[in-house]
Design a protein around this nucleic acid. Structure first.
Length: 271
DNA sequence: AAACACCCCTGCGGGC
DNA sequence: TGCCCGCAGGGGTGTT
């Protein structure tokens, strides 16, 4: 479900609701997520949340002495902060009861998400350590991208989704970005020119930023912390549009599979 | 090293 | 109506 914009929107929604709150109690209802939830997550009980940040598609939460934890939403994970008296619903897997009669609950039907506690620097966790650059920082620029692409034999679409190069670009935005740049997803990464890298960098930043501003993309079940959907779905030009006319030339949008994931593109516009 | 197939899990929509 | 199939925005593993 969530790519970088959806995770960023979630982080921004959570921040005012969690910052400065003390976690009174942690309850784990089903520990079987992507990694088994460690009981040591309960070390945060009695501690105050002092910082919330994001790295790639992970939300990082730090406490004042109870250790830190990182949350990943997988494909179908949701976080919500609601009245502590609210009843549990199907697929609520863990919760943190806060000191103001609210509770942070994690719901995830497919259980591809994760929550990892650590008493070290979260950035040193295995899952975070080998990640590539953040797309919305200056480290992600045309020189950087061009140098990375030159050594890659795989196609440009899967390379854009390679988190060891640049993080946060998932399956929806990869198709959208390539369409905006008029680059075929079938092209080898190494065939992408420096000029095209400039265009890719510009569109990655612009599309992700616009999506964040509109609350992310809701296709099936993403929702913001307040329960509202993301409105960027209205801006999608090719994703999920197979058979529909290309907004640029009117030709039929094509669908294909790359690396077991759907790709959408316009054969006519993207070369 | 890098590319690829396959796996984790539940729910939903389409076809019959 | 119900059943079966394929598919879904994530990442990890094991094989070549």
């Amino acid at each position: 479900m969530p790519e970088l914009p959806e995770v960023e929107v979630t982080k921004r929604g959570l921040t005012p609701l969690l910052l400065g709150r003390t976690v009174n109690q942690v309850n784990i209802y089903n520990p079987n997520l992507r990694y088994k939830i460690s009981e040591s997550l309960k070390n945060i009980q009695g501690h105050k949340i002092v910082k919330i940040s994001r790295r790639a598609k992970y939300i990082i939460v730090e406490t004042d002495g109870g250790g830190d934890f990182v949350i990943h939403l997988g494909m179908t994970g949701h976080l919500k902060v609601i009245a502590a008296s609210s009843r549990l619903v199907k697929h609520d897997h863990y919760e943190m009861i806060l000191d103001n009669d609210t509770v942070l609950r994690y719901n995830d039907p497919r259980r591809f998400g994760a929550i990892i506690w650590t008493d070290k620097s979260p950035l040193e966790l295995t899952v975070l350590r080998k990640l590539g650059v953040e797309p919305l920082t200056d480290d992600f620029n045309e020189q950087f991208l061009y140098s990375k692409l030159q050594t890659k034999k795989s196609n440009i679409k899967q390379t854009l989704m390679n988190n060891e190069i640049v993080v946060g670009i998932g399956n929806i935005y990869a198709s959208e970005i390539l369409f905006s740049c008029r680059i075929s997803p079938l092209r080898t990464a190494s065939s992408v020119t420096f000029e095209e890298c400039k265009s890719l960098v510009k569109e990655v930043k612009s599309i992700l930023t616009n999506s964040i501003a509109q609350g992310g993309t809701t296709i099936r079940d993403f929702s913001q912390v307040d329960g509202k959907p993301g409105y960027f779905v209205q801006n999608l030009l090719v994703y999920g549009k197979d058979g529909k006319p290309c907004p640029c030339c009117g030709e039929s949008i094509q669908h294909m599979v790359q690396g077991q994931r759907s790709t959408y593109y316009c054969k006519n516009c993207q070369k």
